[in-house]
């Protein structure tokens, strides 16, 4: 974990191709299973990258390595030019800059919606409580659950909980947002309300890594689609290219299965 793997020199601040997240030759094993194999992936500032692939392909693991909820065995990951620290205070500081939204929401069950969104600000950023609450309420309004601020997570629907989770991550003013299958645990009628919030975020220029099965979202919001299978990145392309003209057999096979009906 010594080499900083930014290969291209970061350009000026206006450069749209300025790399923000760089994974270089990342490998990870779960026991005998080689879940991430030689992953090279560069995500530019403001880019929306959607990671798709069959289950077990390693896409969630890939997403979780970016803020080190999963450790890696070899290779390097850097965010905004700084290599990912191994542990301790440095790692916590970096995680504060990387927002994460989980499949199962993971809102703090014993805290109100408002407290969920202020907690990180007050504990990590040391923001004064009043200021944190002000920002929290603004964010909750933005994701459309402002009137639920004083409820507990269990009193909200799945879609509302996930939107609160997005607000909680945004409250930290992250440089990049990771979405780990954010709609997979939702009832079908709630998926759109979450996707709309994510679309809005993408339009606002947030850098996003989204692991999802929502092909519609990939088509409309992604700058780039990354297709993974068996722990490898098999194909990277723009959504148009990928969905209309996939190059690899693996991707063709996958798309034929999910788009057949």
């Amino acid at each position: 974990m010594s080499a900083v793997s930014v290969t291209e020199d970061a350009g000026g601040p206006a450069d749209p191709a300025e790399p923000l997240v760089v994974l270089d030759n990342v490998n990870k094993h779960f026991g005998a299973l080689h879940v991430l194999q030689d992953i090279d992936l560069t995500i530019a500032r403001g880019e929306v990258v959607v990671v798709i692939g069959p289950s077990g392909s390693g896409k969630s693991t890939l997403c979780r390595t970016i803020n080190r909820l999963e450790t890696i065995d070899s290779g390097s990951i850097s965010i905004d030019g700084k290599p990912l620290p191994a542990e301790g205070r440095e790692l916590a500081r970096l995680r504060a800059d990387v927002g994460m939204v989980f499949q199962s929401f993971n809102l703090f069950a014993h805290k109100t919606v408002l407290q969920n969104v202020t907690l990180g600000q007050t504990k990590v950023r040391r923001t004064p409580k009043a200021e944190a609450e002000e920002r929290a309420r603004a964010l909750l309004d933005r994701v459309g659950v402002g009137n639920q601020a004083d409820k507990y997570p269990a009193q909200l629907s799945g879609g509302q909980q996930q939107r609160v989770a997005i607000a909680r991550a945004l409250a930290m003013e992250p440089k990049v947002m990771l979405f780990d299958e954010p709609t997979s645990a939702l009832d079908p009628e709630m998926i759109n309300e979450v996707l709309e919030v994510m679309q809005q975020l993408a339009r606002d220029g947030m850098t996003m890594v989204v692991v999802t099965h929502e092909m519609g979202f990939a088509r409309s919001a992604a700058n780039r689609v990354v297709f993974m299978a068996d722990g490898r990145i098999v194909e990277e392309a723009t959504p148009d290219q990928f969905f209309s003209n996939p190059r690899s057999d693996r991707a063709k096979d996958f798309l034929s299965k999910i788009l057949a009906h």
Binding site: N67, L69, R89, A92, R93, L94, R95, A96, D97, V98, G99, M100, F102, S104, N106, L107, F108, A109, H110, L119, G120, K123, V124, A165, R168, A169, M172
Partner: peptide, 29 residues
């Protein structure tokens, strides 16, 4: 749930903050 601690770590909380603010209050209850 493991996800509670993970979400707290993802926000940038350290071990003691996760334990004190998130895990123990729920464990005690």
């Amino acid at each position: 749930g493991l996800g509670q601690a993970e979400a707290a770590r993802a926000l940038g909380l350290g071990f003691f903050q996760v334990l004190w603010s998130i895990v123990l209050p729920q464990a005690f209850r």
